[in-house]
Amino acid sequence: MALLLRATGTRMKPTVLTMAARLLMIGSVAAGLGIAQGAVTDTAMAQSSVSGGANVVQPPAATPKRLREIVHADISTRSVQVTSSFTGTEIIVFGSIEHGRPEHAASEDLYDVVVVLEGTPEKLVARRKSNVVGLWINTQSMTFESVPSYYAISSTRPLDEIASPLVLRNHDIGFDKVRMLPVGGWESGITTADLRKFKEAVIRLKNSSGLYVQSDYGVVFVGGASLFRTTIDLPANVPVGNLNARVMLFRKGQMLSQFKSQVRMQRQGIERYLHDFAFGYPLLYGITAVIVAAGAGLAASSYFNRRRA
């Protein structure tokens, strides 16, 4: 059964259509082979997970009775194409818990799943305005070395109910837990209060432009306790760059297993051509822009001249 499923799994392109099929597949594989499999480390999972649902099949390892829970997941869209008609997209992350014990699904021993989708870190400047002789002018600024351009969190419950702030910080979960280091470090005379205010401002502004999004009950379990899914909105203003996805399984405030994957996001078609032209050959691009503009002006003047004559 596993072989058959693997064959179909690799042949199919990861599209939303096949997503449902794979969701079912992962579930049945996990249920069917679950007992026979051993614990697999996080990193091994991350590497093997690239080939879609087939990653579930792992060589069995000798392990005692109590098997560790493992989270398996996949993403509906492995590659986001930013074309001229790009208006944002939706990314579906789905997966299952292997070795999940149903008795734990009751009461306080619930499994929790946290899905984090992070954009490429970028160098960012935050500026603060103050009133200078009646005008609101940028007077203070802070440059951060690497701030995720986009950050989406989706979880089964509010984060503070899932784990302690320390655990969340250790796993970089949450906007305020994201490492933001100012360029120049502490030598540039930054106070802790300033840093906190600037960090809060970055989070607030990213949040209001839809780039930092959090969905407290975004991850839902379907068909019992072992299958879950969530939908993450990728708006059109997300800076173009690869995204890192992490799916983390928690219970009793501790992380049990983690799955990592990447979503490729790149420009395509005319969009890519124009962007590469503008940044790769800026002088030629500028000259082309002028030729296009002058041509448009000439065409307009000759057209309307002929019409009037």
Binding site: E122, K123, L124, V125, A126, R127, R128, K129, S130, N131, G134, L135, W136, N138, T143, F198, A201, V202, R204, L205, K206, P239
Partner: peptide, 15 residues
């Protein structure tokens, strides 16, 4: 935009 007290004193941009 220059004189009115802004709703948001901070702004962010790519460095």
């Amino acid at each position: 935009g220059l004189i009115g007290t802004p709703d948001e004193f901070y702004s962010i941009g790519r460095a």
